[in-house]
Amino acid sequence: MKINHNRPTVAVHKFTSCDGCQLAILNLGEALLTLTELVEIKQFAEAGILDEHATVDIAFIEGSISTPREMAQVKKIREQSHYLIAMGACATSGGIQALRNMSDGQAWIDAIYASPQHIESLTTSTPLSDHVRIDLELWGCPVSSHQITATVRALLFGVLPKIEHDKVCMACKRSQAVCVMVSRGEPCMGPVTNTGCGALCPQFGRGCYACYGPAENPNPNALASRFEGLGMSASEISRNFLFINNNAPVFQTIGQKYSERRDE
């Protein structure tokens, strides 16, 4: 799979999401100018470029599938894109809004909206990979600008980008930050989470929120046991796992286990 012509085309689509991943592209600064010299951007709503039906070499999609319209649209985008890249937590795992998968979505709609008949929404929020074939997943909430440029660069070279699989702890220790869990007993999701952020939160003395999703070879059971040892309640433990990437199976299984324990 190689992009053969001189100035490849790129689209950035948006589904159910906060636009934060699009901002990671807008925030590239000078590199954004380089990017626009290397590729032709056909669709990028946050930058004011609109042509959602354009056939492109590389399509990034931000957001999860949470409406019937998005369900149809993602299939069309798949057909009109050579590479389809899921960008960010919503597109890769369903996002924070996937919390609704664990409750009665229709009941919420009925309770919140004055005229619920106008709300056309699925009862679930799901990742793109539940609906179409995805070529690459860039995890993160939001993704980092570096992930975007490294991905485009690699595809322009005709190779796949190196996707980070190591735990946040590896980046944390390389940054010489002091482990918040060991030195303060602060719960940290770093030991089960993909790095990509460069251990941003631990460097500011906070535990990791697992924005980048489950790392390779994670042991969520052992981490949850450790959280118990630090005195956390079952409901706190469940909330740590059922957060931004709550719908990622590795986090969901353990999160629901502790959530049920709380209900007992």
């Binding site: 735990k167 590896m170 220790k173 030991p191 994670p218 981490l223």
Partner: peptide, 12 residues
């Protein structure tokens, strides 16, 4: 069953 395979031991 207890190890997080996080690499902290090797880093320190």
């Amino acid at each position: 069953s207890r190890c997080l395979s996080c690499g902290n031991c090797t880093a320190v």
